[in-house]
Write a protein that binds this DNA or RNA. Structure first.
Lengths: 194, 194
DNA sequence: AAGAATGATTGACCTATGTTATGAAATTCT
DNA sequence: AGAATTTCATAACATAGGTCAATCATTCTT
C-alpha cells in the first residue's frame, strides 16, 4: 500500500523499520474520481498529499471566474494549498482531479510531532521545500524574461509526462495566457519547425 | 555589532547565551558601497546575507541585457542567490547595492554544522524558507491574474518602505514591465484618483 | 449509435505593452 | 555651484495577446 511513498522518501533519507511503521501509521489513503475536489477554496487545509496515481491541478479562480493554475501533480509529486497548509489558514486555492486519482495524505499536526521524533523526516521535508522554492524562483524568472512561446516550449520539455495528460486549456492557464493564444503560438511554432 | 540580527532571530526562536556565541562566532561582516556587487553571475555562492543597513537587488540579466529583479532587500531582510546557495551551484543572479550597505553573512557549511548543534536554528531557517516560499507563490498568482497596474499598487502598498528608496526603473523590472509602461500606468492611476 | 459536452482552431477586431526617440527634471559628483 | 548622470514623462508607432464568435473534431454519456 505504501511502497511507492517509501521508495520516494528513501531517495533522500534512510529510516529504520520502526520509524517507517511510525510514519506509515499516521498516513491516510484517499481515492478520488475525475473532476472530484480534493480541496475547495475556504476549506481548512490540514493535509498535504503524495500522488500515488492520477493527475491533479491546484488553481485560483479570479473575480472574472478564470482559473489560474499554480501547480499540476502526477505520480510521485506532492500537492496541497501549501500556503494554507503551512500557515494554517483557509484554502485560497482549489484542487481537483484531472484524472481519477489515488493519494496518500499526511496531517500537519502529525508531521510536526514526527519532526521531533524522527529528525531525518524533517530533513526530507526541508529538502522538498527547498526544491519547491527553487522551482518557484525559476518560474518567476521565466515569467519575467521569456516570451509565451518560450515558456510553452520550456514547459513541454520540462514536463513531457504531464503535457501528454492535460489539455491545452489547462497549459494556457498555467502559462498565464488564453487558450486561443496558445493555439496560435502552437501553429506558429509548427510553421517554423516545418 | 550583532544586536540587530539577534533581535531579528529572537522573534522566532530562543537561544542560550552559549548558543548565541557559537552562532555569532561564525558570522562575517561586510560593508559595500553603492553600486558595488555582492554576488556576480558565475560566482560560487557560499553565503547568505542579513541586511543590517542599506538596500540591494538580486536580478538576472537576459540575452538582450535587460535586468529582471527577483528580489529587493532592505534592513532586516535576507538576500542571496538562494537557488545557487541551496544547490551549491554557480550564481545565476547578480546582486548589487542600490544604497551603501552593511551585511552579515553566514556560510552554508557553517550553517549545516549549526543545524546539528542547535536544532532551534534549523527551525528558524525552515520558518524563513517557508515564508519565502509562500511569498513566491503569492507573486506567481499575482503575475498570473492581475493587471500590471494592480501589481504596481499591490507592490507599493505591500512594500511602502522599499518603494520610497528605489527608482521606478527598478520597480518596473521587478513587475516585469518596461519603465515607460510603468510611467503610463502611474499617470493613469493619478488621473483616476483626481 | 445519436446527441451532448468538451477541446482545439481560426478570424476580425481591440487593448495593453514594447520600441524608439526626445526632452525636462531631479540627483549626484567634484 | 556647475557639470554629469540618472530618472521620469511623453509621443508615435509596432506587436503580442485578449475578446468575441463561429466551426470542427473528439470524447463522453445514455
Amino acid at each position: 500500500m505504501y511502497s511507492e511513498i517509501e521508495k520516494h522518501i528513501s531517495k533522500y533519507i534512510k529510516l529504520s523499520p520502526d520509524e517507517w511503521n511510525r510514519f506509515t501509521g499516521v498516513l491516510i489513503h484517499k481515492k478520488l474520481y475525475k473532476k472530484q475536489y480534493l480541496i475547495q477554496e475556504g476549506d481548512p487545509v490540514e493535509y498535504e498529499y503524495y500522488v500515488v496515481k492520477g493527475c491533479l491541478k491546484a488553481y485560483h479562480v479570479d473575480a472574472d471566474g478564470n482559473q489560474h493554475i499554480v501547480q499540476f501533480a502526477i505520480e510521485d509529486w506532492w500537492i496541497s494549498d501549501f500556503k494554507a497548509f503551512f500557515k494554517e489558514e483557509k484554502a485560497r486555492l482549489t484542487i481537483d482531479c484531472i484524472e481519477a486519482s489515488e493519494l496518500i495524505g499526511i496531517k500537519k499536526s502529525d508531521l510536526e510531532q514526527l519532526y521531533i521524533e524522527i529528525p531525518n523526516l524533517e530533513r526530507f521535508f526541508r529538502i522538498k521545500l527547498t526544491n519547491a522554492f527553487v522551482s518557484f524562483q525559476d518560474r518567476i524568472l521565466s515569467a519575467l524574461e521569456k516570451t509565451s512561446a518560450q515558456r510553452y516550449l520550456e514547459f513541454i520539455s520540462t514536463y513531457p509526462n504531464i503535457e501528454q495528460r492535460i489539455s491545452n486549456y489547462h497549459i494556457a492557464n498555467y502559462l498565464g495566457i488564453k487558450p486561443e493564444s496558445l493555439s496560435r503560438l502552437r501553429r506558429q511554432i509548427l510553421n517554423i519547425k516545418q
